[in-house]
Nucleic acid binder design. Structure first.
Length: 475
DNA sequence: ATGTAC
């Protein structure tokens, strides 16, 4: 991205000046000059298009890890007011609805766990169904699947996959309201019937990590983290169901936009007013997909505990937090001193409520919401805490963010060689797809350290802990 | 992201 076209407002905040006569809201980009310079120009084009959509409140924004996506950039945040013609967009949520990270803290330390990492890697790889189209043990009938779409992680816990304490530390306590299974197509449901409790592919992973550095002692204490501790992070989403909903509604919302005369700068931005029939239906289907993803990560938590218990009989894994980064959520935010109900699209962006927020579990209320920046398989991840006065509708970065396309990565790396190199660095990778491994080469991602630092400096969240990967099951 | 692609 050419920085000449931007105006630097603060060390970590930039804006895109409007051309004369241009009808769009403000565009704000969070990040450092090097991070922004490494982004594709498409990011700027896409977020400027978002800023032209009806009913946008405040600015259309990108997080420090942004890269270009379908319609909206990944790392994009945009809030809309339903009462002012605000829209909802499937491209603003993403195809992998409610993709997110479940983070589990353990009672294991690197010093005693490391001796069995090879067996742990093999056991997890055997226990966790992963890969495109891969199905799990669970086969649900239509009535059971509808129940999952209503009850989210609660369904999983009721059926023995975890405990009540897990639910307390899942965003929305494990279930969102407003899910309408009837608005989900039969095809979407059919695709999901065998995919509960599966990891998927692409950038999804299950990673065993060690807490290597603590930045904020008080927040680390609240989150139950200390140096040398083993933590497990599960990154996945709503699998075939969410993807099919995205596909179905892209068409429906495009038709609605055309019917209602909404000008779309690009057809990938297909959207409809939140109050229109199509907008309401997408919201109902999307909320069902959020519950599907929350249930999926809950079942994977159970499978992870079972696998760990085979290797470390005394292992205990508690849910630290579970947070989505592909959603549209109805939230109250203060605008010009007045609370307003907004539909906040976060696509590749994490919700990051600051200290004192009423929706946080009591244990974390003083520290702020746990925020996970998931890194690439070779580098590392960060746990942060929501900051007071977050300027981006309580949002923060979600990962390292790609710096290179999958195609470019395939041309540069070979999966097998990469896995051997990582093994020499003490990182054990298990995958069914060598091509996938090459596409996910750490070098194809931005520097996660720079993303986390910029996230903190921009006032989006505060760093709490750095996690180093040790074992990674890739999709 | 995805029973991977107009």
């Amino acid at each position: 991205m050419n920085l000449q076209q931007l105006r630097q407002l603060q060390p970590y905040l930039w804006s895109l000046p409007r051309a004369s006569g241009e009808q769009r809201a403000e565009v704000l980009l969070y990040g450092t000059a090097p991070l922004l310079a490494s982004m594709d120009d498409k990011v700027l084009e896409q977020i400027a298009n978002v800023a032209a959509l009806p009913g946008l409140v405040g600015a259309a924004m990108t997080m420090p890890d942004a890269h270009w996506g379908y319609g909206f950039p990944i790392g994009g945040v945009a809030a809309f007011d339903a009462e002012q013609g605000g829209v909802i967009s499937a491209g603003g949520v993403g195809f992998d609805i409610s993709c997110g990270i479940r983070c589990l803290r353990s009672n294991l330390d690197l010093s005693d766990a490391a001796a069995h990492f090879t067996r742990l890697a093999d056991t997890l790889f055997h226990a966790i169904p992963a890969g495109v189209g891969e199905e799990g043990e669970l086969k649900l009938n239509p009535a059971q699947l509808d129940q999952v779409l209503q009850d989210g992680a609660h369904w999983a816990v009721q059926h023995g996959y975890g405990n009540a304490a897990d639910l307390e530390y899942v965003e929305e306590q494990g279930r969102v309201t407003g899910a309408v299974p009837n608005y989900v197509s039969e095809l979407a449901k059919k695709r999901q019937r065998g995919e509960m409790g599966t990891l998927g592919s692409g950038n999804h992973y299950l990673e065993v990590q060690v807490v290597e550095r603590i930045y904020d002692n008080a927040a680390a204490l609240a989150f139950g983290l200390h140096p040398g501790q083993i933590v497990i992070s599960i990154h996945c989403g709503s699998r075939g169901l969410g993807h099919q909903i995205g596909t179905d509604y892209l068409l429906m919302l495009a038709k609605a936009a055309s019917r209602l005369g909404i000008h779309l700068p690009n057809r990938e931005l297909a959207c409809a007013p939140i109050k229109s029939p199509e907008g309401r239906q997408y919201l109902g289907a999307m909320n069902a997909a959020i519950n599907c993803a929350l249930a999926n990560r809950q079942i994977l938590t159970y499978l992870t505990r079972s696998a760990c218990a085979q290797v470390y009989p005394h292992a205990e894994l508690e849910t630290l937090f579970d947070v989505s980064h592909n959603t549209c959520k109805v939230e109250t935010h203060e605008i010009d001193g007045k609370p307003r109900l907004l539909h906040v699209h976060r696509k590749g962006a994490t919700r990051a409520f600051g200290p004192g927020h009423a929706m946080l579990p009591e244990r974390y209320r003083a520290a702020g919401q746990p925020v996970v920046i998931g890194g690439s398989m070779g580098t590392g991840s960060y746990i942060l805490a929501g900051a007071s006065g977050n300027p981006a509708f309580s949002s923060a970065s979600h990962g390292a963010g790609r710096a290179m396309s999958r195609h470019q990565a395939l041309a540069r790396w070979h999966g097998r060689e990469l896995i051997n190199e990582l093994a020499q660095q003490g990182i054990l990778i298990r995958t069914r797809s060598m091509r996938g491994a090459a596409e996910e080469a750490p070098g194809a991602y931005k520097d996660v350290d720079l993303v986390a630092e910029a996230t903190e400096q921009a006032g989006l969240a505060r760093r709490v802990a750095f996690l180093r990967p040790k074992v990674c099951v890739k999709g």
